[in-house]
């Protein structure tokens, strides 16, 4: 198993660094383009959610991200010190099949995380929010 841990600040430049780091380890660990895309999307949605809602846009807080290459999975753990918030409790959008006039703008982020990962979990531990994303890497991806 291989691990790579980064610490970013709760701001856009931090998200940029995170994306670059994911691209770098995807190359080093021979992660497929599809898996890298899926995990980048899921990770972005989670982290921008933490910055905007968890930290209310304050840009000086820390977010720790651990990338782990396991035998069958790429696992990413996101840890933040914002108030308790479980993104899995956000209701699913109910208007995905509706025509343009009835579509809400937004509310898609967490829905996409669920769609693009094989497992998505939340727990509150030692006053931290811990989100884990998992994507299988060995079933034709």
């Amino acid at each position: 198993m291989r691990n790579h841990i980064i610490h970013i600040k709760s701001r856009l430049s931090g998200v940029g660094i995170m994306n670059e780091q994911l691209a770098k380890i995807s190359k080093e660990w021979s992660i497929s383009k599809d898996v890298a895309f899926s995990m980048n999307l899921a990770l972005e949605e989670i982290v921008t959610n933490v910055i905007q809602h968890g930290y209310n846009g304050h840009d000086e807080y820390d977010i720790t991200i651990r990338f782990s290459l396991e035998k069958h999975n790429l696992r990413i753990q996101i840890k933040d010190g914002a108030p308790e918030f479980n993104p899995l409790e956000i209701p699913e959008p109910d208007d995905l099949a509706k025509p343009l006039e009835d579509r809400n703008i937004g509310g898609l982020g967490i829905h996409l995380v669920k769609k693009f990962t094989d497992n998505f979990s939340y727990r509150r531990m030692n006053s931290k929010n811990v989100i884990t994303l998992l994507k299988k890497i060995d079933d034709g991806n």
């Binding site: 999307l41 972005e44 343009l100 703008i105 937004g106 898609l108 982020g109 996409l112």
Partner: peptide, 19 residues
Amino acid sequence: DFINSSGLRVFIMSLKKSK
């Protein structure tokens, strides 16, 4: 090469305005 949910939002807003 990449799009996130905020990017999708831009497309839906543009579609509404063009309609």
